[in-house]
Design a binder for these strands. Sequence first.
DNA 1: GGCTTCAGATTACATATGTAGTCGTATAGG
DNA 2: CCTATACGACTACATATGTAATCTGAAGCC
Lengths: 133, 133
Amino acid sequence: MAESDEGQDIGRPERISEAEHAVMEALWEHSPLTAADVADKVGKSREWSLATVKTLLSRLVAKHAVATEPDGRRFLYRPLLERADYVGGESRRLVDRLFGGRAAPLLAHLAEAEALSDDDIAEIEALLRELKQ
Amino acid sequence: MAESDEGQDIGRPERISEAEHAVMEALWEHSPLTAADVADKVGKSREWSLATVKTLLSRLVAKHAVATEPDGRRFLYRPLLERADYVGGESRRLVDRLFGGRAAPLLAHLAEAEALSDDDIAEIEALLRELKQ
DNA sequence: GGCTTCAGATTACATATGTAGTCGTATAGG
DNA sequence: CCTATACGACTACATATGTAATCTGAAGCC
C-alpha cells in the first residue's frame, strides 16, 4: 500500500512513463474521451493496439493521473494531472539533474545545438522583459 | 547482435538510465577512475554498494558509453560519451517531447515555476545578445 | 607454494515499462 | 430469450532498471 490505509491521496506524484505521457497528451488535448477515442488519437503517430492503450489508461488511473467516470457501460477518461504540472515537473527534473538547477546553461546548450530559432529568441526576450518589470 | 557482425560501432546512442548517469557524472568530473574510485565519488550522495557501481559500469561499457583500459589487474574507466553530447541529447528529447521542439515555452515554464534566479536572467540576456550579433 | 584477498564476470531478483492477448459480463440486436 | 459484441479486468511476457550477492581467477603475503 502506498499511503497508509485510509486517508486521501495527497501528493506523491507517481512517475509517468513516456508511453503513458503520449496517452496523457491525447487527454490534455481533449477530454473526456473513451478508451477507443484515445486509441484513435494516439494511433495517429504510434502503432498501438487498443489493448495497449487500455493498459496504459489503467496504469494512469492506478497512478492517479487520470480519473474515470462511468458513461453507460463504459468509461470516460479525464486527466487529473494537469499538463502544466507534468511539464513543469519534468523540466525541473531535467534542469536539476543536468544543470544543477540552473536554466541558463540549458538554454546555452539548446542555443549551441541550433535549437533556438529567431522566433524563439524574440519570444524569450519578451519573456525576460516581462520577468524584469 | 546489435550491429551486424564486424564493423565499428558507429552511431546508435544507447539510452543511459538515471543511475548510470550518476556514474557518468563521476567519470566526467575526473577520469580515468577505478571502480572503487567511482563508487567512492558516487557514494557521497547515493547509498550504493561497490557491487552496484560495478554493475552500472559494466552496463555503461556494454552501451559503449564508457571505455576500459587495463591497469595491472584491474580496469580504469573513462567516458566515451561526452557530457555535452549526453546533456544536449537529453535536453533535446525533453524539448521535443514536451514543447514541440521550441525552447521558449520551456523557459516560460521554468520562469513561471520561479526556477529562474536573477543571475539566470542576466546570464540568459547575455547569451541572447551573443546569439544576435 | 598455499591461503587470503581483491577485481571483474556472472547470476539474481524485484519493479517498471512496452506491448498485447484473454476472460467475464453487460448489453444491444434479432 | 438468445447470441454476438463491445468493454473493462486480468493475465502475459520480454526488456530495462535498480540494487546486489556470488563465483572465479590472479596477486600478493607468509
